[in-house]
Design a protein around this nucleic acid. Structure first.
Length: 716
DNA sequence: GGGTTAACCTTTTTT
DNA sequence: AGGTTAACCC
């Protein structure tokens, strides 16, 4: 078969990687070097040149988005659908294995997935059961402990008892938590991976089956794998040794959640005769942007080492803006985007990036002010919203009465007179008799230890769920959801509540019906549509705004920007303590991860890159003075142009004969004295030369605009 | 048991 | 600042 169309669009190293002979291969792919392209063409090459069946290929990614995109691009190259090929996230594939082999994995057939919110809830319950104070034992910390161990493959029995009282207590919670999960058929994210790994490890038949089936294993973003994921990959690929991993040690930004950058170093030791190919030609950014990014990342030690180059022009200098405060920063950014749009560019080509999601608010406010459409990625996802989780709890309870967490959630939402007191009794009964809340409730209804009001309320609830179950039988998914929303009183509850928030909730609930309507499900599947939908909700939390396809400015955290590119990028909040983040300054190794994050951010930019920081920032309701991020000092000054209130200043750094004040003698935030108005602070500087005007906020007289040449201000 | 208010706490990134 | 929980009154 003629495969020249595959090679035509690749450079030499890309070609080498795509057409490399079977065997272990590590592709070190710098930012913008065509990583995804290599991966997709490799699959196309396997299928077309080597005539491999798509069924024998396994491709693993980290995000659902990446998986979808890869599938789409492969199908585009091949020209036909490859529905049978396994492409998915580690979690998605692990889930698929566990669904198929639930019995062998020791799970209930209808096991449910816990998202981290649910997990936290269950941890609280375990703490309570152990009579441990959740003030002294913050559930978050316990969660951290449990997930940390699971990600390293450690069950409670693998962790040695120590003399450390605290450690032992945490271990007890871990154990109890596991018992609860097992009893209710619940599986958290880390458990999906660990369970799937153990299944392969311990079950020889299944191991053989999948080792034989997957002749080729491909992995995207390999630098982000954690211990379990890597062990699982090794297990799967051990027979054929055809493992093709693509990664970039400089873009490893998930060590905090267990990713082990070492895996990338370990790879060539674990797989004999590993071929290593470097992709160093960058097709994305201007030379200026690339040199700056290279300079920053060059401050990290322990890199595999690689130097990106490009054939592109130098392009514009990188622009740096020192804002007075975070509002000023946002105004500046939005203003620049406005000019960009005025030049005929698309809004969606501009991205505002930040270290933490909380920073998005100021930008949103200003964007809203000027009426510029935008889209925020990340933050609260659709299926994580409280009202959606309430609705899902009803659906879960309809499918399984034994689902205690869902029972707890639904029982008094909307309020129906079943408060803490009653629930305490239910919980107690369930614990003593080792039964589900549902059964405990039935027992209490028939017993005589409850006040009749509670019995009535509980009875009504039980009848409600049973009746919903009946009504829903035989209906299409969307109708099931609709019936549940009305029958449960959820929608009515939010309808009668006033305020914008309540309206949003009603809209979201209605959106859930739409989501159910569009949910495609294979009718051949032995698992019902509703359970599959519920799983989908947990595994793919859904984007916050599944909005219409409008031309929007893109707002997102640096983490979620990985893998994307934009012609115009604003990297904001470059302040010590914010970026690099405070918490990364305490632990060793974390600072390098922050620097990689900075590198990731900078290399998202194709043509123009703006960096900004605020000299005063209001965070958590407190205003504080900041210091510019150390990363700014790591930029070669000749590549950077500083902007202050609309006009360009000399680049930073050694400017031999020039004093920094030379532009107009005043800096924002300077304290000045005026002969009649007294003392004040400089808020704005506008214009240049003799026309320079400044806005000064005087302690006694408020803010005034003054012409600098006549004002005769003294800097204090 | 429910609803309101007051204190309080937490603020990184995600499957 | 924002949201969540605890305390309080109805």
């Amino acid at each position: 078969m003629d495969v020249s169309h595959i090679f035509d669009r690749l450079n030499e190293s890309q070609r080498q990687a795509v057409a490399s002979p079977p065997g272990p291969l590590l592709v070190l792919a710098g930012a913008g070097s065509g990583k995804t392209r290599v991966l997709t063409y490799r699959v196309a090459w396997l299928v077309q040149a080597l005539q491999m069946s798509p069924l024998s290929v396994l491709a693993v990614t980290f995000t659902n988005k990446a998986a979808q995109e890869m599938r789409g691009r492969i199908e585009e190259i091949l020209g036909y659908s490859i529905g049978g090929m396994w492409i998915g996230t580690f979690h998605g594939i692990a889930h698929r294995l566990l669904r198929t082999h639930w019995r062998e994995a020791g799970l209930k057939q209808e096991f449910q997935i816990l998202d981290s919110d649910d997990q936290l809830r269950l941890i609280r319950r375990a703490l309570k059961q152990l009579n441990m104070d959740d003030g002294y034992w913050p559930p978050k910390q316990v969660q951290w402990f449990i997930n940390g161990h699971k990600e390293e493959g450690r069950r409670p029995q693998h962790i040695a008892e120590t003399n450390d009282r605290q450690q032992d207590d945490l271990l007890r919670v871990y154990r109890t938590y596991e018992e609860l999960c097992q009893r209710f058929g619940l599986v958290d994210f880390a458990e999906l991976l660990l369970r799937a790994f153990e299944l392969m490890k311990q079950n020889e038949v299944l191991r053989d089956l999948y080792q034989q089936r997957f002749h080729y294993v491909l992995v995207d973003e390999f630098q982000d794998t954690n211990s379990i994921q890597y062990e699982w990959l090794k297990l799967l690929a051990s027979t054929h040794q055809n493992i093709f991993v693509v990664g970039d040690d400089d873009q490893s930004i998930y060590a905090w959640r267990g990713a082990r950058i070492e895996n990338i170093f370990q790879f060539e030791k674990d797989f004999k005769d590993t071929q290593i190919i470097r992709l160093e030609q960058n097709y994305r950014s201007t030379e200026t942007i690339l040199s700056a990014a290279n300079a920053v990342i060059g401050n990290n030690r322990g890199r595999l080492g690689k130097n990106l180059w490009t054939e592109h022009d130098k392009g514009d200098p990188i622009r740096m803006y020192a804002a007075f405060n975070e509002v000023d920063e946002a105004r500046f950014v939005v203003d620049r985007i406005q000019s960009w749009v005025d030049c005929g560019h698309a809004r969606k080509d501009a991205a505002i990036l930040y270290r933490s999601n909380a920073q998005s608010r100021v930008f949103e406010e200003i964007l809203l002010d000027v009426g510029m459409p935008y889209r925020v990625y990340g933050g609260l996802r659709f299926f994580e919203r409280a009202e959606i989780k309430d609705a899902l709890a009803y659906l879960r309870l309809i499918t399984s009465r034994q689902d205690d967490p869902s029972f707890e959630r639904a029982v008094n939402m909307p309020p129906r007179g079943i408060g803490n007191k009653t629930m305490d009794l239910v919980r107690e009964r369930a614990r003593v008799n080792q039964i589900a809340y549902w059964d405990a409730t039935l027992a209490l209804i028939h017993g005589h230890e409850l006040p009749s009001r509670s019995v009535q309320a509980l009875t009504r609830f039980v009848e409600l769920i049973n009746s919903l179950d009946e009504q829903v039988q035989g209906l299409a998914l969307a109708e099931q959801v609709d019936v549940m929303l009305c029958g449960s009183g959820l929608i009515a509850h939010y309808r009668k509540e006033k305020g914008e928030k309540a309206e949003m909730r009603v809209e979201n609930l209605e959106e859930l019906v739409t989501a159910a309507r569009h949910f495609a499900h294979d009718p051949e599947d032995e698992v019902g549509t509703l359970p599959t939908f519920l799983t989908h909700a947990a595994l793919e939390a859904g984007d916050a705004q599944a909005q219409r396809w409008e031309d929007c400015v893109q707002l997102m955290s640096l983490h979620s920007a990985k893998g994307l590119e934009f012609p115009l990028v604003f990297l904001t909040g470059l302040e010590e303590g914010l970026f690099p983040h405070q918490r990364s300054l305490q632990e060793a190794g974390r600072l390098e991860e922050e620097r990689r994050l900075c590198y990731v951010g900078m290399t998202r930019a194709m043509r123009q890159l703006y960096l900004s920081y605020a000299e005063v920032r209001r965070l958590h309701g407190r205003e504080s003075y900041t210091r510019p991020s150390r990363f700014l000092a790591e930029l070669p000054s000749k590549l950077v142009e500083e902007i202050r209130d609309g006009f360009v200043m000399r680049p930073h750094g050694p400017a031999p004969d020039e004093k920094p004040e030379s532009a107009n003698g005043l800096r924002l935030g300077d304290r000045v004295h005026h002969s009649t108005f007294g003392e004040g602070v400089v808020l704005h500087v506008e214009g240049r030369g003799e026309y320079t005007r400044v806005q000064v906020n005087f302690a006694d007289k408020g803010s005034k605009w003054l012409v600098l040449a006549y004002a005769n201000l003294q800097i204090l």
